[in-house]
């Protein structure tokens, strides 16, 4: 019997998340794990946009910013429970992505990259300058999700690090499952068709503009939820979350790991999240090393680390 790639990806993900804590020397590693999962979630969204639909966004941190600030502001100003604030943030991000994406995605080429670049910077500027709401560049504290307290009442006591590890792992698992389902659905096939050739896809009846827009909106929701999770885990958020560098970081994670594959992209997120921690001893050379790795991957492993490695592996097998 041959397992479907979807099942393999999901089992690998679940197994790694379950087994990894057995090797954690201290509680700190739960945080690194949680950061990997949260970055992985945003990057999974980018797999749908970049990997499936072939569109580039350089402003996804903007959506993460919306998700994060929704969690900071909605519970205080609207009295929403934090869980609903996540939904509100996702809805706002989706709405904004739809409004911005609709005119742009009718065009071919790199217009989306440029427009999202501007959008991300705009969101970051609003968060920085509208300090009467956002408290400005020094940031704002975020109310607790409250779920850990509920679990503790049920007799299931977790440290904050442990809770966010398991919770973000669960959310990432669901996100990955949805993305993998999408890959095999008619929509996913249509997306990959238009990635190959928009003209060819159009001639076989694919509504190119609508599908690109859908992919963009879905990936914005992924970024927004990841921003919400990060804000609630840190209990504090500053406008840096929506900054241009964060957008670039997301794309780099996806491309490094392998933007065509969900597992690959999460692998990229894991490397770029964990590596700076491993390299604190060589801090001065950290950026140099990351840059070198990036260039080498782009030259020699163009599909990204994981897919290229798997291909080599399979090639030998056959």
């Amino acid at each position: 019997m041959r397992l479907s790639p979807k099942l393999v990806s999901l089992s690998v993900l679940a197994l790694l998340a379950l087994v990894a804590p057995m090797f954690f020397p201290s509680g700190f590693y739960y945080r690194i794990g949680a950061l990997i999962f949260i970055n992985g979630l945003a990057v999974t969204g980018l797999v749908i946009l970049i990997g499936y639909a072939g569109q580039i966004s350089l402003g996804h941190a903007g959506f993460a910013g919306i998700g994060a600030y929704a969690c900071a502001l909605a519970p205080v100003h609207l009295g929403l429970p934090p869980a609903l604030a996540v939904v509100l943030g996702a809805a706002l991000s989706a709405g904004l992505a739809w409004v911005v994406g609709r005119p742009i995605l009718k065009l071919q080429g790199y217009y989306l990259a440029v427009a999202t670049l501007g959008l991300g910077i705009l969101i970051s500027m609003v968060l920085t300058n509208e300090s009467q709401w956002t408290r400005g560049p020094d940031g704002i504290s975020v109310p607790d999700l409250g779920l850990r307290g509920v679990l503790a009442d049920m007799g299931w006591r977790l440290t904050a690090g442990q809770f966010w590890y398991w919770f973000s792992a669960l959310v990432l698992f669901i996100g990955a499952w949805l993305a993998l389902n999408l890959h095999d659905s008619p929509t996913g096939r249509a997306l990959r068709a238009l990635h190959g050739s928009e003209v060819a896809a159009r001639t076989v009846g694919v509504d190119v503009a609508r599908l690109k827009l859908n992919a963009f909106v879905i990936s914005a929701v992924y970024a927004s939820v990841s921003g919400s999770l990060l804000a609630m885990m840190n209990r504090f958020v500053t406008p840096e979350i929506a900054g241009f560098m964060h957008s670039v970081e997301m794309v780099v994670m996806a491309v490094l790991g392998g933007v065509g594959s969900v597992l690959g992209a999460i692998f990229g997120a894991a490397i770029l999240t964990a590596l700076p921690q491993a390299l604190t001893m060589f801090h001065e050379y950290e950026k140099l090393l990351l840059g070198a790795v990036m260039i080498l991957v782009m030259i020699f492993l163009r599909e990204g680390l994981l897919p290229s490695i798997l291909r080599r592996f399979r090639g030998k097998e056959e």
């Binding site: 201290s26 509680g27 700190f28 945080r31 690194i32 990060l230 840190n234 700076p276 921690q277």
Partner: peptide
Amino acid sequence: LYDDGGDPNRARTFASRLIED
């Protein structure tokens, strides 16, 4: 001593690392 580069999220990670690890 760690260098957080002025990024609050990084500083937060280093704070956890300092205490727990």
